[in-house]
Write a protein that binds this DNA or RNA. Structure first.
Lengths: 350, 350
DNA sequence: TTGAAAGCGTTACCAA
DNA sequence: TTGGTAACGCTTTCAA
């Protein structure tokens, strides 16, 4: 009650606004806005005066008002299929790094593998008028994202085909990864290869499988390939496969395995290591996919394909920011990054 | 150019607003707002008319405008020290579940263990006028959070003492967890116990250590306790400790180890399993902390203390929402949840 | 149940 | 450089 200055209608209980700051500092409203947003445009003396008023009043700018006035916010939204997967968290790190370097904030939304949640967050970001949206999509769920895009908000997809003609996308070459994994085994002399995982058409796992098939096909029949499907790509599924393999007769046993994911590989390695154990990699070489921490933290470090998550996120944010900043000259691009093979004990021994 | 209705000044290029929808549907602006926010308040007939107009125009509500008008948004911000740690991601899941059930959205910000980033996101959420903020803080960095709170925005901390008198907090009883871990080993007959990790005063690790000390003290000297410090709590640190332990003379070897974190335990188990290996748990029983996936996915499943991340997040969101919804009657509370012991092979054998 | 109008706190523009 | 002012699109209140 004691801090009423000369406000005719007492504005108590409200947070101070730029108007209050302006009054206190004895300047115009626009000047306060300039001090906050482009301090260079204001004379040293005025700026100090305004800043003092800001501190005294405990002024906190209202970004909602700013977003309304400008038609867009200073934030980028990243809707991601699964933050529990370090691949996507790495993307978020890369994207944040890039966004930050251009003065934007990155806010995260976790879809937790639910297409509904994903679309709900896309709608939220769209309605909040974020500057742009990054999307690591749930497979087969891009209709809504396309709608958002069609309504004018820039959307860049990471790690999921976004075949709208009117957009940027950053992809990872899963087919090539599968190819590299199989080539690795073949070059190590393996001739009876199994691909474990899937089938899930139009998913990364499927693309990896195709790559494996290509590598095998190139051997003109010198290498045999079989496909062992699993329900999901969890450790348990790998364990079941490993268990089943143990009861096979030696001539039907593969000598090289490409697992669609590291978790599968870990499960298999463990199941095959139980006495009477097969020797890895002597009897069977195993290579996984994802460079999951589990792959290198186990007793037998597992060879794998590492995906450049951070780089993908960074590249996606770069494309998005280009579209945001230069809508006129921006040209949509589709970037494909390559996974890298990391050879460890499970294929090349100690 | 063909879609100009009867707008005197052509409003082309702009996204349609509620005004446009109202005009199209032949109703008043306020009615459109009601259709969007409280459809029950509008007659069936009007509602359908308005909804049709919304679809035809491709109207997307502007939440920035809504937040401005109402003074607060429909969103809760969760600033978290490290989304790479599944403990905190679980919190996010629990918080989201609770928020969603009360019609609010949860947006995530990853501080990545940087106090600066944390404060920067706190400022962002504060400036965006979110309904409230959840904070899983970086240790020793609560000044700014207190400032935000003092400026009127509800902040609830999870897993970090927030000793402002004027706030809610959800804590986990690390001291009790350490106590449980040590009791477990003692009840299994272990008499030479080592605590591995820390020291980092005023952190969870330190509190766990204190709990271990208490359990040991209760034996009146029947049990010996030593502290083996580490630089961090990573697998590598555990490996080093395991390695060092191997070269000890048998009488100086602990028969029970409480690791401050599962990663440490994993590293030790692996180092001790290399031939000539010690038998786990016969020679030495090991218990970790966190219920990390690594703890149960390894060759030797490791006993651990499981923290109720999801429940903590849910409880925190509940407290926050109560404060948001009933600011008048809300009473600040401090909740402490208990970790649960999970006994596995590394202490109780097969 | 519906219509009209007054803010909400910025930004951006133009004049001084 | 600074001051004044008109949007921005919604929520909310008050009458009709």
């Amino acid at each position: 009650m004691s801090d009423r200055e000369k406000d005719p209608p007492s504005r108590a209980g409200r947070q101070p606004s730029m108007v209050d700051v302006a009054r206190r500092a004895g300047v115009a409203l626009g000047t306060v806005s300039n001090v906050v947003n482009q301090p260079g445009k204001v004379s040293e003396k005025t700026r100090l005066k305004v800043q003092a008023a800001i501190e005294e009043l405990g002024f906190v700018r209202n970004r909602a008002a700013g977003s309304l006035a400008r038609g867009t916010s200073n934030t980028i939204g990243f809707v991601t299929i699964d933050l529990g997967n370090s691949f996507f968290l790495d993307m978020a790190r890369g994207a944040e790094e890039q966004a930050q370097s251009m003065g934007k904030y990155l806010l995260l939304a976790n879809a937790d593998v639910s297409a509904d949640k994903q679309d709900s967050y896309l709608a939220l970001f769209n309605e909040e008028r974020v500057a742009g949206i990054l999307l690591a999509p749930v497979p087969h769920s891009l209709e809504y994202a396309a709608w958002v895009r069609a309504h004018g908000r820039p959307v860049v997809t990471v790690n999921g085909a976004f075949d709208e003609p009117d957009s940027c996308a950053v992809l990872i070459d899963n087919e090539h990864g599968g190819y590299l994994a199989a080539r690795h085994l073949i070059e190590l002399g393996r001739r009876r290869i199994a691909f474990v995982g899937g089938p899930d058409f139009l998913t990364p796992v499927h693309e990896r499988h195709v790559g494996v098939e290509r590598a095998v096909a190139e051997t003109n029949g010198a290498v045999r390939l079989e496909h062992i499907p699993t329900r999901e790509e969890q450790t348990g599924d790998g364990g079941e496969v490993g268990h089943a393999l143990r009861s096979r007769s030696p001539d039907r046993m593969p000598d090289g395995i490409v697992a669609a994911a590291d978790l599968l590989a870990v499960g298999m390695v463990q199941a095959l290591s139980v006495a009477p154990s097969l020797s890895i990699p002597r009897d069977v070489a195993i290579i996984g996919y994802d460079n999951n921490r589990l792959a290198w933290d186990g007793t037998i470090p597992i060879s794998t394909l590492s995906q450049p998550g951070r780089e993908m996120g960074k590249a996606a944010a770069e494309l998005l920011l280009d579209e945001i900043l230069h809508p006129a000259t921006h040209v949509h691009r589709r970037l494909t990054l390559e996974p890298t093979l990391i050879a460890r004990q499970s294929t090349i021994g100690e």
